[in-house]
Amino acid sequence: MASGKTSKAARRNTPAPLKKNSFPWGTVTAVVVLVAMIAVIGTYVAVRSNEQQARAEALAPFTPTAQNPDPSRAIPGIVIKEYPGGSHVGPDEQVAYTESPPFGGTHDQVWAACNGVVYDTPVRSENLVHSLEHGAVWIAYHPDRVSGEALETLKSKVTVPYTVMSPYPDLDRPISLQSWGHQLKLDDANDPRIDQFIAALRLNPNTHPEPNASCQETTLFDQHNPPPYQPAPTPGTPGARAEDESVDPSRPMQTG
């Protein structure tokens, strides 16, 4: 085999190196073109996804999207708990909330007016928890530890619907933000995490049980004379309703 070939090459009188040199050029060109095209596609895809990511990151990292349904998870200090929605109590009942301020669970049938309402007096938690179920953010503050400029700063956040603010005398920190299933306690009214919390959770359709539910005042809740705050009874207190009552259709209704 090898000998036959050598003889053929010799017979043709053509220098073998020339043929050897001419052969790879087509292949080399083809390979170069292919590699270039793959590089163009790769670069395009990489640049495009980078641009999209940069845009999302720069403009609103705390805006809920399909890819990032609960951006509040990135806020340092956030507490997240799962609560079922819908379980109600009457105006004379109390819920044995285990969180203070509460941020989910059984609540009053009537929600507290929450279309940008600043309450000057402490308001019944059972009503405010219902407002959280409708997508509102509740800013609670300790009345002795937040005043003056800090209080005005907090009030300035409550100019838009689905935001509500009230003093909470039993607060263990100056400020506490509540959204359904979410809480963030803070010391400083200028903390940037306040805006992050509001951006991530106010009306976030992925985190509250009743999208498009109302925040307006009703005939059953007087915005200018709201039912007053009472400390939550300890769980197990006779007559107190449990925080985690689920809506069980097989069980008879307990409320009158």
Binding site: A56, A60, T63, T65, A66, V160, A199, L203
Partner: peptide
Amino acid sequence: WGAPTMPLSG
């Protein structure tokens, strides 16, 4: 649109 529900700037 993946946009904020309300303007944050006030």
